[in-house]
Amino acid sequence: MASSEAKPLTVQCQCGYISFPTPTPRPITMFHCHCAECRRQSGSAFGTSAIFTTEGLFPLAPELASLLKVFRRPTNNGRSSDCYFCPECGSRLIHRIISADGTPRSSVSIKGGCVEGLDWSGAMHIFVRSAVMKIPPEWEQYDALPPWMKMD
C-alpha cells in the first residue's frame, strides 16, 4: 500500500554537486523579492525565496556542511545573512539571517529555483517599490515587507 504522506522536496544546485531534502514537504511561505540585493544575487528581475523552518536542516549535517561554502554579508540593523552556495557552480542555495546579537533565525530561505517540485502558486511579491518589471495588480504585493513579516 502506497503512503499518502507528503515527502520533503529535493534542493539541488545547478551542477548537482550538492543535493539535500527540504526540512518539510512545503515551505511556510514563499515570496519573490524585487530588492536590489535579491536582483544582484539571482542575476534576474527578482529572487524567489521558499521559507522553511530550520528544524531538521540546522545544524547542518557534517557531510552537507563540508560541501557548502558560506558568504556572510551585512544586512540592515546590524544583522548579517549567511549565504550558502555550491563551490563548484556557485548556485546560492540557502540564506539564513543572523541577528545583531549573533542568534540565527529559526527559519531559512531556500532559493526557489533550486527546489525540485516546488509549488510556485500563491507566492507574494515584496519590495515591489524596486521592481524593474510590471507586477499585475491582482497578485499579492507589498511596497516593502508585509506588516506581519518579522524584522529581527
Rank of each mutant, 00 (worst) to 15 (best):
V70P: 00
S121W: 03
S19Q: 15
Q12Y: 01
F58P: 08
M30C: 02
L64V: 03
S80H: 04
I94N: 04
L118G: 00
S44E: 06
I28F: 02
S121D: 15
S42I: 04
C114E: 10
M124H: 05
P146V: 03
A123P: 00
V128I: 15
V132R: 12
F127M: 08
L57P: 02
S91D: 00
S106E: 14
T48I: 15
W148N: 08
I94W: 06
L68S: 04
R73L: 12
F52D: 02
T29N: 01
K69E: 14
R72G: 04
C15A: 11
S130M: 07
G78T: 10
A45W: 13
P62A: 10
T22N: 05
L68G: 06
T53S: 13
G122C: 03
P23S: 15
P25E: 04
V132G: 12
V128R: 00
Q41D: 09
T75G: 11
I97D: 04
G16D: 08
R79H: 14
E63R: 10
M1N: 10
L68T: 06
M149K: 11
Q14I: 14
M133W: 01
E116M: 06
G112N: 06
Q12P: 02
E5G: 09
G56E: 07
S130L: 11
G43C: 12
A50S: 10
I135H: 03
I28G: 02
W120H: 12
W139S: 10
Y17C: 08
G112S: 15
W139K: 12
F46I: 02
D82A: 08
C86G: 08
C15P: 15
S107A: 13
N77V: 12
T75L: 11
E55D: 14
P21V: 12
K7T: 14
P87I: 04
R73K: 14
P8E: 07
E55W: 01
D143E: 15
G16E: 10
G112Q: 01
I51M: 08
G113H: 00
C13P: 05
G43D: 02
V70T: 10
P147K: 01
Y142I: 06
C13D: 01
M149C: 10
A2I: 09
S19M: 07
M30A: 07
R26G: 01
I18Q: 07
A123V: 03
F31S: 09
I51C: 10
K134H: 13
V70E: 08
P21E: 00
E5V: 12
S49H: 15
D119C: 03
I135K: 04
E116L: 14
Q12H: 02
F46L: 08
G117I: 04
